[in-house]
Design a protein around this nucleic acid. Structure first.
Lengths: 113, 113
DNA sequence: CTCAATGCATTGGTTTCTTATGTATCTTTG
DNA sequence: CAAAGATACATAAGAAACCAATGCATTGAG
């Protein structure tokens, strides 16, 4: 089962920020694979969605980039800036709050890990 | 605090369906007020978002409508169709699953009610 | 009698994502 | 070794969903 794309709208940026917080340095393709792995294929980020998002994060100063070569193949590594780290905490806690609200609204019981 | 509109994208339809499931019959304005009340003002559905959504639900055959008058003021009541009831269960359980996945991804602990 | 609240609705614009496409490198497999 | 699939970047056109603004009308409160 793959979640309807409607559901994922609005959470992509937060997911990317959180992954960068946890892993310090990641490149685009790596992010798509990590999300796929962590969600058992239920969330599949397309490149057409990811790259524009990463570019926006960079424009907004939330991440810095370093281009590195693995042989001739380029990898663009992304790292959170100090501002990005703050934004990540904000975003994650807003989403946590939102999910509790939704849980209440929809009368859903979630399992704690 | 009001959630960023980004976050609400994709959940509005599910919220509306769930409210109709719980309350049987509601009109548009009533839905905006109910959501505001249930979420302590954290989710405020604008009319520009709600009415198009309701119209789509009607086009898709998930709700039926009845126009009633309270004096001269019209109210358009929405009720789930049998198909709408099934869709609601689907949507709510998909969202529940999604929230558990997000909780895991973001390493968030939620409180059970 | 004026203003806020109730109640419907649409329009123009933006953001965000999808689908499709393009380029190029590296690895695996028959 | 050729072909296919995986890796790795990126953009462009379009759709979907929402926001902000506006419009019209009724009702109730002060």
């Amino acid at each position: 089962m793959i979640y309807s794309s409607e559901l994922i709208k609005g959470t992509l940026k937060t997911i990317v920020l959180k992954l960068l917080e946890d892993n310090n340095r990641m490149y685009g393709y790596e992010i798509t694979q990590k999300v796929k792995e962590l969600t058992f294929d239920k969330i599949q980020i397309t490149e057409g969605a990811l790259y524009p998002t990463l570019h926006v994060l960079e424009e907004d100063g939330l991440v810095t980039t370093e281009l590195e070569y693995n042989g001739k193949r380029a990898r663009k590594y992304y790292t959170l800036s100090p501002e990005g780290k703050n934004k990540t905490k904000e975003r994650v806690s807003e989403l946590a709050d939102f999910m509790n609200t939704m849980k209440f609204l929809l009368d859903i019981k979630t399992q704690n890990a």
